[in-house]
Design a protein around this nucleic acid. Structure first.
Lengths: 213, 213
DNA sequence: TTATAACAGGGTGTTTTTCCCCTTTTTTAA
DNA sequence: TTAAAAAAGGGGAAAAACACCCTGTTATAA
């Protein structure tokens, strides 16, 4: 039985080491090395001659997050199988991650046997989805077929909305008339089913369009 | 050399198992069992006859969080040494945790050797603080001696501020005149160095007075 | 080529928020 | 017990936010 190599990427070193220890306890797998963020991973992979079989990737990371990293990684090295590992169970994040090329998505509150199974399936079938994640994806497909789609300019506007600027100041920043800003706001009120700025702020934070602190 | 027993408490099972695996790899320590939240820990400890030496406690947990759990645990079983383990580096959280009776506070982005050292020191000296955490505590003592202190009623108000209610509606909910609400708001504007409702919302979220999603 | 959708902006009026200065009542501490 | 704070409330005005309805330009896709 051959040993498959795993690379763990997580900004919290202790967790990366802990997960690595767990992976090493599975007899088919062993950790090659650890990385603290996406950039470090890309650099490291570029400098090594032998590619790992699997990358166990955290989603929320500074510098270069899991989604961006996965996008670049799967484009450059399609043979590497990325298994996302996150505490986030929001469908949007999961979808983004899978779209980026991840071959599976594991929530951090599964049993270690699931992780082992996931790694094995990844080597055998090339992908692995838990029932959990599949359910979330199903709900997202059936539940809300007309998903809210924000335009680039609206997202940019939404970021300013979450600051202490008045709409007039936002208009200046965006090189638009205050009246146009009025329009953006009203359009978002409708799309996001709210009726005041607070609602926009809450939405933006909930959907990670802006990040607090 | 005797073996010290450790209990790991973390709502993310996989992480609990991973950390447990790490702890077991240290030759002086071994994991007794794992718990998914504070309540489970208290129940389990009450039902077992032999107490663990150390509890490795996550801070953010559902059902019963690390702070509350530690409070109860140290009151009931002063001999158990609690080592907090968290991603949060906010001084307020750290202080709360130490006040609750934790004997140490480790950030999840330390090296595993630090965890091992922490566990050892905990057994030898009864406490362990990293330079990291000490620095944060020092800064909090020197840096801001006049810490912002919100009153209960202000906190209650702040929660409503983070909703889509108008101040008039908030006044009704709080059984106060809109004019009094005016006063609450203005007081907070001064305390929190802001000049509009958005600023209050941002503050409330940043300081976990309200939780989004 | 012609809808039609996205984008930018205007007018007008109402409501809400913000600001400042003031009074009364209740609590707290010296 | 008395002075001082804190809590509750008020008036009025200016600024900001919200609502509704409307006019042009670009694209661009049927």
């Amino acid at each position: 039985m051959k040993n498959s190599s795993v690379v763990v990427v997580d900004d919290h070193i202790l967790l990366a080491q802990a997960i690595s220890s767990l992976v090493n306890s599975f007899n088919q797998f062993s950790t090659k090395y650890l990385c603290c963020n996406g950039q470090e991973l890309l650099d490291r992979i570029a400098s090594e001659k032998i590619l790992p079989d699997i990358v166990l990737m955290d989603v929320n990371m500074p510098i270069l997050n899991g989604i961006e990293t996965t996008k670049q990684l799967t484009k450059l090295y399609p043979s590497i199988k990325v298994l996302a590992l996150s505490v986030e169970d929001e469908e949007e994040t999961i979808i983004k991650m899978l779209k980026a090329g991840a071959k599976g998505y594991l929530l951090k509150d599964v049993q270690k046997t699931i992780l082992e199974k996931g790694l094995q399936e990844l080597m055998n079938c090339g992908f692995y989805y838990t029932k959990d994640v599949s359910t979330i994806l199903m709900n997202s497909l059936n539940g809300n077929p007309n998903k809210i789609q924000l335009k680039d300019r609206e997202i940019e506007f939404l970021k300013f909305v979450c600051s202490e600027m008045t709409y007039k100041q936002i208009a200046e920043k965006m090189f638009l008339s205050p009246k146009t800003i009025d329009g953006y706001r009203d359009a978002l009120f409708e799309k996001l089913h709210t009726k005041n700025r607070i609602g926009l702020v809450i939405y933006a934070i909930k959907h990670k369009i802006v990040t607090i602190s």
